Amino acid sequence: MRVENYDTFAKGSLLSGSRKTGNVPSPNYNDFDFNTKKPLAMSDEKFREAIIEQAKKDQSAGKFQSDSAGFRSLVKSYVSAVSPDRKNIISRGFKAIFKNSNPQPKTLNLIDYLLGSVKYCKEAADVSYAEFYDSTGEMVASYSNGRWISYGTTAENARESELLGIYNEAWNNAAKSNQKNSFVADTHIGLINQSV
């Protein structure tokens, strides 16, 4: 799920179910939409080559972008290089939340949510809402009543847009090339049939 949120992309995530902090299950960091900082798998030049090859392969298979597992894997790897360390940010955030024994007031108004002044909502040991920010002040994730949402940072969105530009151009070029080859083959078959 992709939702425009201010100047970032918000992406829903499934819960991992494997670990919990208090009453909150951890997000699934292996999910396509929930990136966390990882070292570059290859140089940007090698990534560019891999993106172009994946686009050609996808075009010939009749797939486009997220229809392709190879594409999703490239996006995750390419974007994770500039992702904030969401795993550490969330882990540290929950340690601080559960260390604080003062629950937030039960009644919160809409203005507090819209202005971002509410960072979490907790009653006793149950957290129903929490927001997580990186060191630059960008919201990178939120948890609300059993659902995690990952918010793309400016750097992540720029890197993903760059990848999409490379991929789309290569996919379109492959489509044009395939159409041209199909036209030449059809013309050649037509000439053979005329001479018979």
Rank of each mutant, 00 (worst) to 15 (best):
I97W: 11
P27E: 06
S43Q: 08
K119C: 02
G165Y: 01
G17S: 06
S43G: 12
S182V: 01
V82Q: 07
Y6W: 09
P27I: 06
S43T: 15
N5P: 00
A130R: 03
N5V: 15
S73L: 10
A170K: 04
T8F: 05
F71C: 00
N30V: 05
P103D: 02
V196E: 08
S66N: 10
K180M: 11
M42L: 08
C121Q: 09
D134S: 05
F132P: 01
A170H: 05
D186E: 13
L115W: 04
E4H: 08
S83P: 02
A96W: 07
P103V: 01
V118L: 13
K20E: 11
R159L: 04
F64K: 10
N172W: 07
F71E: 01
G93M: 04
K87Q: 14
A185Y: 13
E160N: 09
N172Y: 10
T136F: 13
F32R: 06
R48F: 12
R2T: 11
N109D: 15
N102A: 06
H188M: 13
P25K: 02
N28M: 07
K176N: 05
S66L: 03
V3E: 15
S43D: 11
I166F: 04
Y120K: 10
W171S: 03
K180E: 14
S144P: 00
A96N: 12
R72H: 03
K180V: 13
S83Q: 03
A125S: 14
L191W: 09
I111D: 08
N157I: 12
I89F: 06
L14S: 10
P27C: 08
Y6D: 11
